[in-house]
């Protein structure tokens, strides 16, 4: 009798041990994700110390960028990052919004999948392809047609005119913003489409039932219901735009200057890193570039975290 009882119990012990080991292994790797984030923050912070110690807060407000005299300020790159992302949002949001409305309210069901997939494929095209396309196709078109038109029409206006002054170079802040807009469009469109489809059919049908038009249903029923999710999707797109590297590097023109004109060349944090990091000599130069990377990470982290929290809130509300 004893042997019958002890053998299974020993086996049970072994199985318990194996289970604990398996669980522990998965937990270890899961915690690794947190370690990774911590490691990234640490590595960037440590690398940035020499630059922050040397320049202090002035690093954020100075527009000097001179590797020879070792004077570095992050303002032009930070400014360029924010302005290109803003242009990207101005272009990407309306387009993405229109696509989401089309896919959820208008599109014949048979076409919904194929068109949705094609839009999603836009997100799959690598950044560098947008860059090469922007450089060889979009920039010349902008230079020859769109930019001269902008200068003619808007260039003489009092305040807006300053934004569209100077020669049409093709490359510059505006071109980078437009490319970024095209790139973030599929990300925003996908999120907005998904949150639009969380609206209960009954709400939508009730509105149609009392005679509302599609436009009215979207404005008065769908949008108020999904506001948090839509904003979350936009922030997600913004997070992408802020950190995009290669496409911007191709078309922004790489100049450490702050010009009022959107047609002038500029730079962004990511483009500066891509262009200069491997060629940087000296601790201070390298450290200044890493400091820029640190600033970029902090900005995108805040934007993405906010986006995530908004989407989570919508999910919880939908689950209720």
């Amino acid at each position: 009798m004893a042997s019958i009882l002890t053998v299974p119990s020993r086996r049970l012990d072994r199985q318990r041990l194996q289970d604990a080991a398996f669980r522990g292994t998965t937990q270890l790797f899961a915690l690794g994700v947190l370690v990774l984030l911590g490691g990234i923050v640490m590595a960037l912070a440590v690398g940035a110390v020499p630059a922050f110690r040397r320049f202090g807060w002035a690093f954020l407000t100075s527009d000097a960028w001179n590797p020879v005299t070792e004077q570095f300020g992050g303002l032009p790159a930070i400014y360029g990052t924010l302005v290109t992302s803003l242009i990207a949002m101005l272009i990407g949001i309306p387009l993405a919004f229109g696509i989401a409305v089309f896919l959820t309210e208008l599109c014949p069901p048979a076409l919904r999948r194929p068109i949705g997939t094609l839009i999603e494929l836009l997100a799959a095209i690598p950044s560098i392809i947008y860059g090469i396309w922007g450089l060889f196709v979009l920039a010349p078109v902008l230079q020859l047609t769109v930019q001269p038109m902008l200068i003619d029409i808007l260039g003489d206006l009092p305040v807006i005119g300053a934004l569209f002054s100077g020669p049409p170079l093709g490359l510059g802040v505006l071109t980078a913003g437009i490319i970024l807009g095209f790139m973030v469009l599929p990300f925003i469109a996908a999120v907005v489409r998904d949150v639009f489809s969380t609206v209960p059919a009954m709400l939508r049908e009730s509105a149609y039932g009392i005679g509302a038009t599609t436009a009215e249903v979207v404005r008065h029923i769908v949008l108020p219901y999904t506001r948090a999710g839509v904003i979350g999707g936009i922030m997600l797109g913004l997070g992408r735009a802020l950190g995009e590297t290669m496409a911007v590097t191709f078309v922004i023109g790489n100049a450490h200057r702050i010009k009022a004109s959107l047609l002038a060349p500029g730079t962004t944090i990511s483009a500066t890193l891509a262009n200069e990091f491997t060629e940087a000599v000296g601790t201070l130069y390298t450290s200044s570039l890493i400091a820029l990377g640190f600033i970029l990470f902090v900005i995108t982290f805040i934007v993405l975290a906010a986006a995530k929290l908004m989407l989570l809130r919508l999910e919880q509300e939908a689950a209720k």
Binding site: L37, L44, G47, L273, F297, K308
Partner: peptide, 28 residues
């Protein structure tokens, strides 16, 4: 209590700028 935090951090890493990953591995 840690799982939602890991999920949250993972979603942020999913969209984090890839050039930052390059910088990190350079340092590492």
């Amino acid at each position: 209590r840690i799982a939602p935090v890991i999920r949250f951090v993972n979603d942020i890493l999913l969209s984090a700028p890839s050039i930052i990953i390059g910088l990190f591995v350079y340092e590492l």
